[in-house]
Simulated scan of single mutants.
Amino acid sequence: MEHLVNKKVKNIEISGIRKFFNLVSGIENMVSLTIGQPDFPTPEHVKEAGKRAIDQNQTTYTHNAGLLELRRAAADFYIEKYNIAYSPETETIITSGASEAIDIVFRTILEEDTEVILPGPVYPGYEPIIKLCGAKPVYADIRGNDFRFTAEVIGSYLTEQTRCIVLPYPSNPTGVSLTDQELKEIADLVEGKDIFILADEIYSELSYEKQHTSIAGFIREQTIVINGLSKSHSMTGWRIGMLFAPESITRHILKVHQYNVTCASSISQAAALEALTAGINDAEGMKAEYLKRRDYVYARLIEMGLEVVKPDGAFYFFVRIPDQKIRSFDFALDLVEKARLAVVPGSAFSDMGEGYFRLSFAYSMETLEEGLNRLETYLNNSF
């Protein structure tokens, strides 16, 4: 019966990140620096809130958009952190993770043959959904611009078919963010055009040198903001995302969300409420530790003579492979076989990631030190 499967589904693939992670899983004596999974536990008080929700039988459906109290907390979070105001009643939706938010946004705004401009390289979770919507992903090459997805770069890819620009910052896989001036220039470029900006701000609380700025502050009416608690509060498995947009957009997104999942988990919503109120600054301690790790890893990579852009946020380095004749998948596989070290080949992040590998520093300092020692030994023996 496989011949009856939707051709669009047949033509998409499992994420290259997961594909490589699964490939190396189970190999003995392996150090893995692959997955963007915070190595901190969910804060205790947040876990307790989830337990209380179970004990108090808060196990029923909620409003499709999420508990109003949680939506208020989410809206307050954006006011306090980023000075952007959204109505909790009409402009805020609690989703099953940021991934579901991306899905329902694209299914709401995209039509056949419309185009979505993405930075290349980029997180692989956008392209498959765009294609499932019958739309076309258009990769804007940012490799020669220190991985900065600026208005100057975007402008050359705009066409009459452009429906959306995806602005993921701080970026996965590069860790690069954007300045206020760069954000304003992007807003000026698209303001008044029939183009949405999808601002994926899931790493916003992990911005190191300066406070994160949301592009919604420059062009609110055309922006759909996605965020969540997976990275900021180490709640990846709780699956809580937050979506903010003008009411004229969210009222349509909510319909897709309703038929997709009805509502986010009530238990996870209770934990999220605790995270966004009593735990609103829980990310600070984690961020301080990530900053130490970033600086350590950066110093080690530079000492090895590797070409890399220092990340502004998130917890990744996107490193240029010394020998550009080697395909990134082959490099990563050789690294596994000879050094028992796993990283993600750059090709997982579009064709424009070829020639690079991604290294996650969401691991303990001890693990990072061992992994980098293995990388250094491998490079000394191979190049």
Rank of each mutant, 00 (worst) to 15 (best):
M1G: 15
E2Y: 03
K7V: 01
K7T: 01
V9N: 00
S15L: 04
K19N: 09
N22E: 13
G26T: 04
M30T: 03
S32Y: 04
T34M: 09
I35F: 12
Q37S: 11
Q37I: 14
F40P: 00
P41C: 03
A53F: 02
Q58E: 10
Q58D: 06
T60M: 09
Y61C: 12
T62I: 05
H63L: 09
A65F: 05
L67G: 01
L70T: 06
F77R: 03
Y82R: 05
A85F: 02
E89P: 00
I93T: 07
S96D: 10
S96K: 07
E100W: 06
E100V: 06
V105L: 15
R107Y: 13
L118P: 00
P119L: 09
P121E: 04
V122S: 06
P124T: 02
I130H: 01
L132C: 02
C133G: 00
K136Q: 08
K136F: 02
K136L: 14
Y139E: 07
I142K: 04
I142D: 05
F147L: 06
A151S: 15
G155D: 10
S156N: 13
E160L: 08
Q161A: 12
Q161H: 12
L167N: 08
Y169P: 04
P170W: 10
G175Q: 08
L189T: 06
A199P: 00
D200A: 11
E201C: 12
E205N: 15
E209D: 14
H212V: 04
A216N: 04
E221Y: 12
Q222V: 01
I224K: 01
G228R: 04
G237N: 15
R239A: 10
L243M: 07
E247R: 11
S248E: 10
R251W: 08
H252I: 08
I253R: 06
Y259W: 07
A264N: 10
S268E: 12
I280W: 06
N281S: 07
A283P: 00
A283S: 15
M286R: 15
K292D: 14
K292W: 07
V297T: 13
V297H: 07
A299L: 07
I302A: 13
E303Y: 04
E303G: 10
M304D: 08
E307W: 01
E307A: 07
P311K: 07
V319T: 02
R320A: 14
D323L: 01
F329L: 14
F329I: 11
F331T: 01
L333Q: 13
L333Y: 15
L335M: 14
A348F: 03
E354D: 13
Y356P: 00
R358D: 05
L359G: 01
F361I: 10
A362C: 11
Y363D: 11
Y363K: 15
Y363Q: 11
Y363R: 12
S364P: 04
E366P: 01
T367E: 15
E369W: 03
